[in-house]
Design a protein around this nucleic acid. Structure first.
Length: 206
DNA sequence: CACGGGATCGTCT
DNA sequence: GACGATCCCGTGT
């Protein structure tokens, strides 16, 4: 059994959200929600940051009730509702007052597959179980009421672990982020990262 | 397998 | 009142 260690505070405080997005690949996202512990290894991420990134909700350092969480200290969860249906989970990184976060887009499910299947209403473990930010959150039980949660707190129902999986730079592929065509020149920035050759990465049409 | 459209609601204008 | 950092299902091939 690989050693399990929660990510240290300094991990979340690293100033470069792009580096953090790469570093989160291979880490484990664990939830203890509704009396069930579930988890998976992160295989796909995207970086968002203010003030220069137009695809970021806090672009130009815009502060609203919703974006306030993005200005929290690294280590908090930013969860918001997308298309009125999907709960998208992000890890806020960097120092307080600097709005940036990593969207977790897909995991390779590892712990308690039965519960993850039940939450998704499926009966077979396939990539579409957790490939995509909305379905991943659903499989892990993450909801918008977990927004602003401190992932570093010992009693947090959501946390991140290092289980010893090593992801080398050569194992990381990158490309434009999904669904941000409206963000002008920022749409082309290669801020989506995934573990090359992983079947658990989301597939989306160009 | 590709495509098209509907679902559904918080947020900001 | 418009629009998403999406997903699923139906249709046609």
């Amino acid at each position: 059994m690989a050693r399990r260690k929660r990510l240290p505070r300094k991990f979340f405080l690293q100033p470069d959200v792009v580096a953090a997005s790469r570093a989160l690949l291979g880490k484990y996202l664990v939830t203890a929600i509704d009396g069930e512990q579930t988890a998976g290894m992160i295989v796909e991420t995207e970086a968002y940051r203010a003030p220069d990134d137009k695809a970021c909700h806090a672009w130009n350092n815009r502060r609203t009730k919703r974006t306030e969480t993005l200005f929290a200290e690294g280590g908090h969860a930013y969860v918001y509702l997308c298309y009125g249906i999907h709960h998208l989970f992000n890890v806020v990184t960097g120092p307080a007052e600097v709005a940036q976060a990593v969207l977790i887009r897909a995991i390779e499910p590892t712990d308690n597959l039965e519960r993850q299947l039940a939450r998704r209403g499926r009966d077979r473990v396939r990539p579409q179980l957790t490939a995509g930010p909305g379905v991943m959150s659903k499989a892990l039980g993450i909801r918008t009421d977990h927004d602003a949660l401190d992932l570093r707190a010992s009693d947090s129902p959501i946390w991140l672990e290092d289980r010893g999986r090593v992801v080398s730079e050569a194992d990381i592929a990158s490309g434009p982020r999904v669904g941000v065509a409206y963000a002008a020149e920022c749409a082309e920035w290669p801020w989506r990262f995934w573990i090359a050759n992983s079947p658990w990465v989301s597939k989306w049409k160009k």
